[in-house]
Measured scan of single mutants.
Amino acid sequence: DESNKPILLPNESQSFERSVQLLDQIPSYDTHKIAVLYVGEGQSNSELAILSNEHGSYRYTEFLTGLGRLIELKDCQPDKVYLGGLDVCGEDGQFTYCWHDDIMQAVFHIATLMPTKDVDKHRCDKKRHLGNDFVSIVYNDSGEDFKLGTIKGQFNFVHVIVTPLDYECNLVSLQCRKDMEGLVDTSVAKIVSDRNLPFVARQMALHANMASQVHHSRSNPTDIYPSKWIARLRHIKRLRQRICEEAAYSNPSLPLVHPPSHSKAPAQTPAEPTPGYEVGQRKRLISSVEDFTE
C-alpha cells in the first residue's frame, strides 16, 4: 500500500519547517483550565467582593489541597506544564494547583491565590483569567444561592456549585447557560463527603469543560472538536499529503500518493430520524474511523 510507505522529508523547505513548528504547539495530551472561586458570607451577589477574597475557610483550604498538586509557578516550564496563561514571573501569584493523568493536564485558576492589587480596583487582572475559563468551581460559603452570571465573562458556560453542609458533607450541583443544557445535566445534585469532594468536583468540572469545548467549536462548523492527539494525527497526515504533492510536482515521474478510497458502495440502511441538538453535539466527541485508517 503506497499510502503507508515511509517518505523522504525535504531537506530545505520553509513550509515544512513551519508545519513542524506548528505541530510542536499541539500538545500530545488534552488540556483544561478551571476557575475556582470562594464566596464568603454576604458575597453571593457581589463580583468585586468575591474576586477580592485572599483566603477562605478551613474546609475550603482542605478542598484545594485535594484538587491537585501545589506547584510554584516560577519553577514551571510552560512547554511541559500546562498553566492556561498564568504568568511565571509573579504577575498572577506564586502558587497554583494542577492535576494530570496519562492523557490530560488541568490547571486551576484560583482567585484566592492570585494577588489582590490596590491599583486594580475592579480586579481585572484576576478576571482576565477567571472570566475566560469555560467552567468555574464555586465554593459557596455564603449561606445564600449563587446565580450564574454573578461573575461577568463571555465564556462562563458552567458552574460547579459546592455548598458546604453539616457533618462534613457538601451539596454539589451544576448550573449552565441555556445554550449548554443539551450537553450538561443540571437536574441531579449530589451529597458528597469532604473527603471525596475534590475528586467529584474535579471530575464534574473536567466533563463540563470538555462539553464546553465542543459547544464552543460550533463557531467553526468545519472543524469538529477532536482530542489533542487526534489533532496531531490529522496535522501529520495533512503534512504527509502536502509533501507527496510537492514531490510529485517537482518530479512528475513519481506517483502521487493519495489516501486509500473505498470503491465499494456502502450498504443501504433504513433512514433514521434526524438526531436532535443534544445527540449531534455528543457525537462530535467521537472520532471518525477515517482518522485511523487513511
Rank of each mutant, 00 (worst) to 15 (best):
E2G: 07
N4S: 14
N4P: 14
K5A: 15
P6Y: 05
L8S: 14
P10F: 09
E12L: 06
S13W: 11
S15R: 09
S15Y: 14
R18I: 05
S19C: 15
I26K: 07
S28Y: 14
Y29I: 15
I34F: 04
A35L: 05
A35N: 02
V36Y: 00
Y38M: 00
V39R: 00
S44Y: 03
E47A: 04
L48I: 12
I50V: 05
S57K: 01
E62W: 02
E62V: 05
L64Y: 11
L67R: 00
G68I: 05
R69Q: 14
L70S: 05
L70F: 05
L70K: 10
I71N: 07
E72N: 09
E72H: 09
D75R: 13
C76P: 11
P78W: 05
P78D: 12
L83S: 15
L86C: 13
D87W: 01
V88F: 14
V88Q: 10
E91Q: 13
E91V: 06
F95I: 05
W99K: 02
H100F: 14
H100R: 13
H100I: 14
M104E: 15
A106H: 02
L113P: 03
K117V: 12
D118K: 15
V119W: 11
D120V: 06
C124T: 12
D125P: 09
R128G: 08
H129L: 11
H129Q: 09
G131Q: 15
F134H: 03
S136G: 03
V138D: 01
G143Q: 05
E144M: 08
D145R: 04
F146D: 01
T150Y: 03
I151K: 01
Q154S: 15
F155W: 11
F157T: 07
V158M: 05
V160W: 01
V160Q: 00
T163R: 04
D166V: 02
D166L: 03
Y167Q: 04
Y167W: 06
E168Q: 14
E168P: 01
L171M: 08
L174N: 02
Q175Y: 03
Q175P: 00
Q175L: 06
Q175A: 13
D179H: 08
M180I: 14
E181V: 09
L183F: 13
V184F: 08
D185I: 02
T186N: 07
S187N: 10
V188M: 12
S193Y: 01
D194E: 03
N196I: 01
V200D: 01
V200T: 03
A201E: 00
A201K: 00
L206D: 01
A208F: 03
N209Q: 03
A211K: 02
S212E: 01
S212F: 04
Q213E: 06
H215D: 02
H216T: 06
S219A: 13
D223K: 08
P226C: 05
P226K: 07
K228Q: 07
I230F: 06
A231I: 06
R232T: 08
L233E: 13
L239E: 13
R242G: 10
R242Y: 13
A248V: 09
Y249M: 14
S250A: 08
S253T: 12
L254Y: 14
V257L: 12
V257G: 15
P259W: 10
H262Q: 14
P266D: 10
A267L: 07
G276V: 07
G276S: 06
Y277M: 13
G280D: 12
R284F: 08
R284W: 06
S288G: 12
F292V: 13
E294T: 11
E294G: 14
